[in-house]
């Protein structure tokens, strides 16, 4: 187990395409850090650079006390779980688990002990002699995890490991990964484009966009105080509403200097007027999505013609097409300056 230190790391592909534009990040020993961002944001590239599967164009990566820039993947003492599992199709589950250990000339009894332990933790003991193609998606996922665990590496690297599973299984495996990571206490870097996965798994969340880090922090902190317009729009489901200040009308509260855009979380819009000052929104109900415990309202803002989304507890009995007045407390506004893309308060 080890801390990971990423300093001014850049990745430039042939033809001067800059995929990573200078990233600094410290990952503490035992921490689970999730890299999240839209596709093409550089999160996978960064992970693959940690793994040694991509060369590092500039900067430095340390795992523990070693600079690993020039080390082969195997020498970095990391384990990786791939999106499509990458199990060796011609080897049994046991063979898959053993392969990395055998290549390191681990003694036979040690291999057996570790495989047994990993199989017990992951509940794959009954399948040890089977071939990967005889397993279900979830079982393959466990074997891929097992292959990482048996190595007892300094760090786990996860490259979208759950995106090939169906929604229900993905939820289960997410919980298991978190539990496993807590138990083993192994430093982990986890890449995903699914923000729900990112929010629930991360000790610390790293939001990336266009080859740079937009924000780093605890998931809840990022959710409650997104530092940039991009982070505000990317984190949260349903996504945040954005309204230019010019369209707020006369009752706009005092906003920090430079603010020209405000973000409003769907759950911050309410049907009852809150205590103290409040922003008022006259809307037309366009669509009602009941999602079980809560309801999503798709509304047309009468003043600006924009679509707003509001999230309500329980059931809402408005009729589609009818007018609806909503309020929002000024404290719930996220003020931004579109010229810098950053928060103004």
């Amino acid at each position: 187990m080890a801390a990971i230190e990423i300093a001014s790391v850049r990745k430039v592909y042939p033809g001067n395409v800059e995929a990573i534009k200078g990233i600094d990040l410290s990952i503490a020993d035992g921490e689970l850090v999730v890299l999240v961002g839209p596709s093409g944001c550089g999160k996978s590239t960064l992970l693959r650079m940690l793994a040694g599967l991509e060369t590092i164009s500039a900067g430095e990566v340390r795992i523990g006390d070693r600079v690993v820039n020039r080390l082969e993947p195997a020498e970095r003492d990391i384990a990786m779980v791939f999106q499509n599992y990458a199990l060796y199709p011609h080897m049994s589950v046991r063979g898959n688990l053993e392969y990395g250990l055998r290549n390191r000339r681990t003694p036979r009894d040690e291999i057996d002990r570790r495989v047994k332990e990993a199989a017990r933790i992951l509940e794959i003991e009954p399948y040890l002699e089977r071939k990967p193609r005889q397993l279900s998606g979830g079982q393959r996922q466990r074997v891929a995890m097992g292959r990482a665990i048996v190595r007892k590496p300094r760090a786990f690297l996860f490259d979208e490991p759950l995106s090939n599973l169906d929604a229900k299984l993905r939820g289960q495996m997410r919980v298991e990964i978190k539990r496993l990571q807590r138990t083993l206490g192994t430093t982990s870097v986890y890449v995903t484009h699914d923000q729900l996965e990112a929010m629930t798994l991360a000790d610390r969340l790293v939001v990336m966009n266009g080859g740079v880090i937009e924000q780093v922090g605890r998931p809840i902190a990022i959710f409650e105080r997104p530092e940039t317009v991009f982070v505000a729009s990317f984190i949260g489901s349903p996504p945040m509403n954005f309204v230019p200040v010019s369209e707020l009308g006369a009752d706009a509260p005092g906003l920090p200097a430079g603010t020209d855009l405000v973000g409003i979380r769907p759950e911050s819009l309410s049907l009852e007027r809150p205590e103290g000052p409040a922003l008022e929104f006259e809307t037309i109900v366009e669509l009602i999505e009941p999602v079980g415990g809560e309801t999503h309202l798709h509304l047309r803002h009468t003043a600006s013609g924009r679509t707003l989304i509001a999230q309500m507890r329980g059931r809402v009995v408005e009729a589609e097409g009818s007018p609806l007045r909503l309020w929002c407390s000024p404290r719930a506004l996220h003020p931004f300056d579109t010229r810098t893309g950053r928060r103004t308060d």
Binding site: A74, M80, F82, Q83, N84, A86, Y99, G100, N103, R147
Partner: peptide, 10 residues
């Protein structure tokens, strides 16, 4: 990924 897994596996 198979090649990469093998490289990580040494």
């Amino acid at each position: 990924e198979l090649t990469e897994a093998a490289r990580v596996d040494g």
